[in-house]
């Protein structure tokens, strides 16, 4: 079956299987390989992308349900000003070690910071519970968010 959706601002039309996941469409059909496959069962958050602005695990999100919706992946998010600020802050704070979890963290954080410009550390830890960094670089990631928040609010 055919499915049409918007990905990073561009309309895409793809042929999909009924049980296919959004992650499969992004990586295998559209070659948007910035989004990673980790656990493939909604536990690790490596595959997080935004669907209509909300962070979802694309590995367990139905491709068919994506029809008509707006998807943002790390490729698009880092063209956006907030995403660029986060990316730069991750680099500066050492928030990237092996890098595998980074696209998912960026996606979740963009959604959180769009909704709340100055989240508390508690808000952030709760919002990031579904993103696992197996290098355990959480402190640097939180430092990067803090730097992003203070930079943006200082403007």
């Amino acid at each position: 079956m055919e499915m049409t959706f918007t990905v990073n601002g561009t309309q895409a039309k793809v042929e999909i299987d009924p049980a296919e996941t959004l992650l499969g469409v992004l990586r295998e059909r559209l070659r948007l390989t910035g989004t990673k496959e980790g656990c493939n069962e909604g536990e690790c958050g490596a595959c997080t992308v935004l669907v209509d602005g909300l962070p979802v695990d694309s590995c367990i999100y139905s491709a068919a349900a994506t029809g008509g919706r707006r998807v943002e992946t790390v490729e698009g998010l880092t063209l956006d000003e907030l995403g660029r600020d986060l990316q730069a802050a991750f680099v500066a704070a050492g928030g990237v070690q092996c890098g595998f979890c980074t696209p998912g963290f960026i996606a979740t954080l963009v959604s959180v910071l769009r909704e709340n410009e100055a989240p508390s550390e508690d808000d952030l830890r709760t919002a990031l519970a579904g993103n696992i960094c197996r290098c355990t670089g959480y402190s640097q990631i939180l430092d990067a968010v803090a730097a992003t928040v203070s930079r943006r609010n200082g403007r």
Binding site: G42, G45, T48, L54, P55, A127, A129, N131
Partner: peptide
């Protein structure tokens, strides 16, 4: 129930 990503869906 899971994390934010599963709660929104």
């Amino acid at each position: 129930v899971g994390g934010l990503q599963t709660q929104v869906v």
